[in-house]
Write a protein that binds this DNA or RNA. Structure first.
Lengths: 215, 215
DNA sequence: CATATAATAAACGAAATGTTCATTTTTATA
DNA sequence: TATAAAAATGAACATTTCGTTTATTATATG
């Protein structure tokens, strides 16, 4: 996993190409961006592009892969912190509908706003958003299956799809509208709309659900 | 609105180009489809394409515009039928969360499955899905504002975005997985997840909400 | 049938792609 | 700091796709 053997030039070049491309996608749309525009914006020769990537799609997918990996890594930290905390609160629900998890996802989106905009809005092709969506879906389904109470009124997959879709739509809207509310508020809104609905799809009494702060 | 003055050849050509393009998008992805492939599949000369459309985007957007117009027209019929019916049931909630409305949206998607797949999955660029999303959003916000009870815990726009996103995600998943459940079931799932959550964002007692069938 | 309109094939320049190669610049490290 | 390895560069190239023009053929409509 240590890829620190990278030549400075390589790291700098790839970073420059990625940033240039994300910028240009947001300005002109994915289809309208040419390789020459990217290298020009990145202040590099056009042939240099092909030393690192096969085509536009390759460049974007690598960018998305790395942001997804970064997300997963940080996500694990948050999860384990919560799980650990909840050992002492067995009556609390272990599900990634938790306030802290939603909060973390919004934070990560805020910290990488441009890439998230491209990734989630579908601006970079359908495949781009699918990657992130499936991460959220799978994680949701996984934790859903870990619940003691399996009396779910909706198939886990449908639940995961719906959860991820709702969340991603909200994040997309939030980023594209220049983050009109603080993250705390968005988390509250999401909980009020989806979570209190989700509550009904599970046979879980309201007081077992951890809604506000968990840490 | 009467465009029946169309030469048979024109109608046939445009239909053929549209169908060919939708097919090819689902096979190879939007970006990878060339104009020549489209005309070849449609069994037409390449120059003929340019007699009708400026480029790929133009073709797709016209297809999406017409399916959206068709949706709106049929949607109005459903709405007015429900509204009329509800004159005699003043205690029922007038909101397009209604079972019949959701049902109609799923039906329309099923009847135009390929185009919906392209439109909703983001396979045809971001703009494609935005068009339909905003129709659902705006309609939701409009009917939300008509409610007597304005005590909403969430901004109407956030509500509309969330509603539309959740619905579109479910439809996309449903179509891409070859409609694994009948529409009735999908409507039920959607209601159980989103609607009972939405219920909490409104200050509306449960018995005022029309959940099952309204007609 | 006559006329108008649509579709066609061939040909063209322009733009973008992806690759090769010899040369220059930068980096790592001994 | 000197040197070898690696990376970036610019020029040139064949290809592909695009969008348009033009002269000709096919077809719908009245």
């Amino acid at each position: 996993m240590k890829e620190k053997n990278l030549d400075r030039r390589v790291a700098r070049t790839r970073r420059a190409l990625q940033n240039a491309f994300i910028q240009l996608i947001l300005e002109h749309g994915y289809d309208n961006v040419t390789i020459e525009e990217i290298t020009e914006r990145a202040d590099l020769g056009r042939t240099t592009f092909y030393l690192h990537f096969n085509d536009k799609e390759d460049l974007l997918m690598q960018a998305i892969d790395s942001i997804c990996d970064d997300f997963i890594q940080k996500h694990k930290t948050v999860i384990s912190r919560i799980d650990n905390h909840q050992k002492h609160n067995q009556d609390k629900l272990q599900l990634n509908l938790d306030r802290d998890i939603i909060y973390h996802i919004f934070s990560h989106a805020r910290d990488n706003a441009n890439l998230y905009k491209v990734m989630l809005s579908g601006e970079g092709g359908a495949q781009a958003s699918r990657r992130f969506a499936s991460i959220i879906q799978d994680e949701t389904i996984k934790r859903l299956n870990n619940l003691q109470n399996h009396q779910i009124k909706v198939p886990a997959e449908v639940f995961g799809v719906s959860f991820a879709g709702n969340l991603m739509t909200l994040i997309t809207w939030w980023l594209e509208n220049k983050q009109p509310y603080p993250i705390e508020t968005m988390v509250k809104y999401f909980q009020q709309m989806f979570l209190f609905g989700a509550l009904n799809t599970l046979n879980i009494s309201h007081d077992k659900l951890q809604v506000d702060s968990s840490i």
